[in-house]
Design a protein around this nucleic acid. Structure first.
Lengths: 188, 188, 188, 188
DNA sequence: AATGAATGAGAATTCATTCAT
DNA sequence: TATGAATGAATTCTCATTCAT
C-alpha cells in the first residue's frame, strides 16, 4: 500500500512554497500537483478544497506559534524578559522554517481567518503585555499600540529582509541586536 | 466626443481599493467595472489587461514616491536630518492617500515588478545613506542592512497598524515619536 | 466640408487588403480603421456593418466581372474564341487589380453570397458554353463540368501563383500560353 | 482512468468539419464542443488553444501527404510516371477523406503555417521535378513554374468542383482523364 | 490512494456597434 | 462627416472540482 502521509507532506510543502511565492489565489491546484509530482485529483484525497489546504496550513502553524509564544511569555516575570524570550523564539522558529514563517506573515493579505475568534493575534497580545506592565509600573504609561507596532515592525522587517535576500545571516545571530534595538526604540 | 479621463480615474481608484482589499488575482474585472459603474469592456479601452492595470498603478505610485524621497533626502546635510524628512514625507503621504500607500506595501505579494532595473528600492536607498554616513564618520560603523531594516520596520509597521485599524490617529501625529524610536533603536 | 468619397475609397482599399490577407472574420473594424487612418466609428458612416462592407466589395467587383465576361463571350461565334476572350479579359483584369481579384477568388471561403440568385457563377457559365458547343457539334460531347473545372483550374491557379509570388510576370504575358494549355488539356 | 484518445479524435473530426465549412476564425469553441458532445473546457485538455488545434490539424495532415507524395515520386524513373503516381495518390487520398483534404486546400486562407521551413510545398516540389526532367532532356525546357501551376490547377480544381457539389463521381474515376489533360496541357 | 480526463461555472478578453461630442 | 469612448454580448480560456478507472 502506498503511503499517503508522504504524499500529504509533499503536497503541504509544495503548496506552502507556491502560496508564499505567488499568493494563494494565483496558485493553481495544477501548480501544486505538478510541483509535488502527483496528479491533480490526488490533492482531494487529503484536503477538501484548495481553500481548506491554505487555511489548514495557516491554522496549524499559527496556533503552534501563538500558543508557544504565549506560554513562554507567561513564564517570564517582567516585560523585558518576556520580550526577550519572544524575540528569541520568533528568531529560532524563523530559522527553522523560513517559508512557513513567511506564509504566516503574508497570510493576512490572503484573508485567511484565524480559527478561534478569541485567538490572540500578535499585536493584541503585545498590547496586553504592555498594559500589564503599565499597571505594574514597570515602565511609564504610553500608547501600547504604538509600542506593539514598534516591536513587531523591528522583528518582522528583520525576517522580511531575509526573505528578499538582503540579509543572509540567521535570525538567531541577531537576537541580541534586535532586543537591543527594541529597548532603545522604547527607551526602557 | 466623450472624454475618457474621468472614466480612467474612476477605474484606477476602484481597482486600487479592490486590489488592496482582496489582492490582485482575487479581484475580477467585473468587480472593478461594477464598482466604477462602467461596462467590463470599458476597462480594456484604458488598459491592455488586468495585470497591466495592476502594474501601472504600482509603477506610477512607486516612482513618484521613490523619486521624491530621494530628492528630499539629497537636500539634507546629514543622516539624522535625512531620516527626519523621509519619515515626515512618508507619514504625510500616507495620510494623504492611505489606500494607494497600502497598495505599495502589499505590492511585493502580488509579484509586481519595479519598472527600471536601476530604480532604487527603499531598503537599498537607506543602506546607501548609511554607508555614506559611516564614511563621513557621522556614526560608528555597523551593518547598514540591519539599520535599514530597523527603520523600515518601524515606519512600515506604523502604517500597517493603521491599515488594520489598530491605530486610528494620523501618521503625521506620530512623526516625532517615530523618529525618536528610530534614533533610540539605532543609538545615534 | 470634408470629402467623404475619399474616406470611403480608402476604407474600401484597406478593407480589401486585410480581407484578402487575414480573411473577413479575422479582420476587425479597428484593423481597417487604423490602416485607413480614420476612427472606428467612421466606417459606419459609409457602411451599415462589417458584413455589408465585405458583401458590397464582393458584389460590386463580381457583377462587373461576371457581366463583362458574359458580354464578351456572347459576342464571339464559337467556343474557341469565347475561351480566348474570356482568358484575355481575366488576365487583364487580374493585372489591373490583383488584390480585388484575389478577393473574388477567396470569397467563396467566406460564405459571401452572390446577390441575385440567378446570377451565373463562372463554373456554371462555362458549363453552359460547353453544352452549347456540344449542341452545335463544335466538339465531341463529354462531361462539361470536367471541362469547366480544367479551364478554371488552369486560369485560377495561374493567378494564385502570382499571389504567392511564385510567378512574377504579368498574367497578360501568359494569355497565349494559358489558352494553349487549355486547348491541349481539352484536345480541341 | 478515462482514456482521452477517443475524445481527442472526436474533437479533431468535428473541428475539421467546422473549419472547412465556416473557416477557422468563424468557428467557435462552443461549436466544436457542441458538435463533439463534450464540454468546452475539454478542448483545452487536448489543445492549448483554438489556433493550436487548427494548426496541428493542418500540420499533421500536410506532413503525411507531403512526405508520401515525395516518396512515391522519388520511386518513379521519369516525369511522366511521377506525375501519374502523384495524381493517383492525390485522387485516392481525396476520396478517402474529402473533408481533411479540403482543409488542406483552404488552409492558405487561414494563415496556417507549414511547420518546418525546409518543408516542401507542392508547387516547389513540382518545380524541382520539372527542372530535373529538363536536365535529363525528358522534355524541352520551359518555365517550370508555369508547368507546376498548370498541374496544380487541374488537379486542385477537380477537387474543388467536388467540394461545391459540381461533380459527384469520385476523384479516382477521373485519374486517367486528369493525367491526360495534364499531358495535353503541357504537350508531352 | 492515485490518476488524469472531463466538467462547467466563471473569469478575462474581444470586438461590432452605438452614441455623445 | 468624423471621432473615439463606451457598451455588452459573444468568445476564449482557466481552473477547482468530480468521477470513471
Amino acid at each position: 500500500m502506498r503511503d499517503g502521509t508522504n504524499t500529504r507532506k509533499k503536497l503541504e510543502r509544495c503548496a506552502l512554497g507556491l502560496f508564499v511565492k505567488k499568493g494563494v489565489s494565483a496558485t493553481t491546484i495544477k501548480d501544486i500537483a505538478n510541483k509535488a509530482g502527483v496528479a491533480e485529483g490526488t490533492l482531494y484525497r487529503h484536503y477538501e478544497s484548495k481553500d481548506e489546504l491554505a487555511q489548514s496550513l495557516f491554522t496549524n502553524a499559527y496556533e503552534e506559534v501563538a500558543t508557544t509564544l504565549k506560554q513562554l511569555a507567561d513564564k517570564e516575570p517582567n516585560l523585558e524578559k518576556k520580550i526577550y524570550v519572544m524575540v528569541k523564539f520568533f528568531c529560532e522558529k524563523y530559522d527553522e522554517d523560513p517559508i512557513l514563517f513567511n506564509y504566516l506573515l503574508i497570510a493576512q493579505h490572503n484573508q485567511l481567518k484565524i480559527s478561534h475568534e478569541k485567538e490572540i493575534n500578535a499585536h493584541e497580545f503585545i498590547v496586553m503585555l504592555f498594559n500589564e506592565a503599565f499597571r505594574k509600573k514597570e515602565l511609564p504609561k504610553r500608547d501600547p499600540h504604538f509600542c506593539a507596532s514598534i516591536i513587531l515592525g523591528i522583528v518582522l522587517q528583520a525576517a522580511i529582509s531575509r526573505v528578499y535576500g538582503r540579509i543572509s545571516r540567521s535570525m538567531a545571530e541577531d537576537i541580541d541586536d534586535l532586543v537591543d534595538a527594541i529597548k532603545g526604540a522604547l527607551h526602557y
